[in-house]
Write a protein that binds this DNA or RNA. Structure first.
Lengths: 332, 332
DNA sequence: TCATTTCACTAGAACGATCTAGAAGCCTGA
DNA sequence: TCAGGCTTCTAGATCGTTCTAGTGAAATGA
């Protein structure tokens, strides 16, 4: 029904403009070596014919693809923010992004293979779940940058946020408000749950405080469950593993008739869109995901274009104080 | 530092196996025309060398790419669910997906061009914002399927949910519970806000009820603002434009000291992950996004492989009753 | 027995770009 | 006037596949 006409090639443009294929190629990629007059003539002909270079052919010949592969998980809403930021930075550096989604039915390696097939010159993996060895195998083919996870071995680059420092700031913030009975609802088996857990323990002990830790997870449900188990001796402040868990916790506290932050202060982690919701206004530790994403893109581009060895970039998070943290009630 | 060795080609495998390039090609693509013994020999050699076909070269030669372009918006969390479902269905049909993100700094047409550059044989656009004319222009090149929006002209396929029927079900549900004073907080200028608004008006009038409509939007803030403006004569039930708006509304009602659903019933739209949160349990109209996504993929594949004309698929949504809707208090 | 078909395989031309090497034209300076 | 050096342009090879049109050998049929 609909007529799918053959798309014009370099040859067509060359004939229309009365020059050689090679010259059209030169003009199309903006390379030096064409007179201004012919350049205009060729561009005119190309526009006339609606010519668009065929990237497959182009990529086949020139080893450069100017393409960065980015894998993200559809299960994590905040990955979308990272994708956003990565697009912006890649575009600024003159690169295009190939996106690969990791879903429950589509494991990470499958996604990576697809990204490589598209011709990605480097890979940026958000919180990769592969082992260091597997990552190293891919790193033998193209530069690989792990985002938000840093225990990836020496062959893989990483850009991450300093979990210890984040937790330290969280404790600092609450202690300076006057809290002493602080609980950490941890992330269970989630990525970076362990470093945050041990950072909490170390930091509390350093201050001579009791490091109470409750098993949690990355989702609202985990926060609720943990919140319900707080019952007997309620702390005056809680540091959740992340914002979503914090939300569940707040809901549980509400159900128990407790006010946040009057009765209990709650601190999230990630400064995600959940924390920023106007009716939530959750105090949170920001990893500045967009900045990290930009750094990861920079890193990938540097690896592609330079000859520097893999490295690990660690950025310092910062605290965003909103409405869920305050000084404890007198005598808390 | 890291040694990026040249990847093996068909030629390398051919030499290792002692056969011609063409035969290796036949074996690699599983085409008929090779003896079982040689097939095994070739596969062995390929495995040995770690050969992976170069998709760029492959795609250049064979016009088929088996690639579907899917554009989604990073601003809409539920697009992630659609991506999930689309991956599954595409994979089942033997296609790969090329993802393109639409962000604030990256308009839809830019994303589409990138998807075409990757060699997409068809495009699936989630809630496209382009005009019918612009869509038609792309539809002249490849089949284009609009997902969740159906006013896209005759050259573009569409797969969408019946908004009228969705709103009808919403009203029906509330009326059958005993509600008569029902308000619709609309979606403002969002996609499908208008059809839902007029469906609400028509359906309420058909039942001899007053169709009260309040200006809203697609986000939590819009629901809160609208909720705060309800003040004077509070209805017994509200149909929000979507789940996020419903969440904001619920928050506003809470702040006003009203209980949901005891004082006011709230119905969302989309049955998104927000509605399913265990502490929310929002009653909602489900568009069954995953099913729609699968249908869109089917449609795209059918268009690619067959010669049928563009068409519009409309599916019926269904109601998911959870904890935010109930009979009104006596005398409500 | 010999023509015909089938099967397994191959040589070489595509695909649509880029890249290399070199040619033609014009300028410059001695 | 001519060597040398630009600038502008072109022919042809090339990237790694798939496709077309075969070839040769074995199997089949009358």
């Amino acid at each position: 029904m609909t007529e799918q006409q053959r798309r014009p090639t370099l040859m067509d443009v060359a004939q229309a403009a009365g020059v050689s294929r090679a010259l059209v190629s030169i003009v199309m990629r903006g390379a030096p070596g064409a007179a201004e007059a012919t350049r205009q003539k060729v561009l005119g002909a190309a526009r006339e014919l609606g010519y668009r270079p065929d990237s497959r052919a182009r990529l086949l010949r020139s080893t450069r693809t100017k393409l960065l592969g980015l894998s993200f998980s559809t299960a994590h809403a905040f990955h979308a923010e990272i994708v956003d930021a990565a697009y912006a930075e890649a575009s600024a550096k003159g690169y295009e992004l190939a996106l690969g989604g990791v879903t429950s039915g589509r494991p990470e390696d499958r996604t990576i293979e697809a990204l490589l097939d598209f011709g990605s010159e480097a890979l940026i993996l958000i919180s990769p779940t592969l082992s260091s060895d597997e990552l190293a195998r891919y790193a033998g083919q193209v530069p690989v940058v792990s985002l938000l996870r840093n225990d990836v071995g020496e062959l893989t680059d990483s850009v991450s946020s300093d979990d210890y420092e984040g937790i330290r700031m969280a404790v600092e913030h609450l202690v300076s408000l006057g809290h002493r009975r602080i609980v950490h609802i941890d992330g269970g088996t989630a990525v970076s749950a362990e470093p945050r857990r041990s950072a909490f323990r170390a930091e509390m002990e350093r201050r001579g405080l009791e490091p109470a830790i409750i098993a949690g997870g990355a989702m609202e449900e985990d926060g609720m469950t943990a919140g319900n188990s707080l019952g007997p001796d309620m702390p005056t402040a809680v540091i959740a593993f992340n914002d979503r868990s914090a939300l569940g916790l707040i809901e549980s506290l509400r159900a128990q008739g407790l006010k946040v932050p009057a009765d209990v202060s709650v601190l999230g982690y990630d400064d995600s869109m959940f924390a920023r919701l106007s009716y939530v206004q959750l105090s949170s530790i920001s990893q500045d995901a967009p900045l990290l994403a930009a750094a990861a893109v920079d890193r990938a581009v540097a690896r592609i274009e330079g000859t520097q060895p893999p490295g690990h970039v660690v950025r310092t998070p910062h605290l965003v104080a909103r409405r869920t943290t305050a000084a404890p009630a007198a005598g808390g």
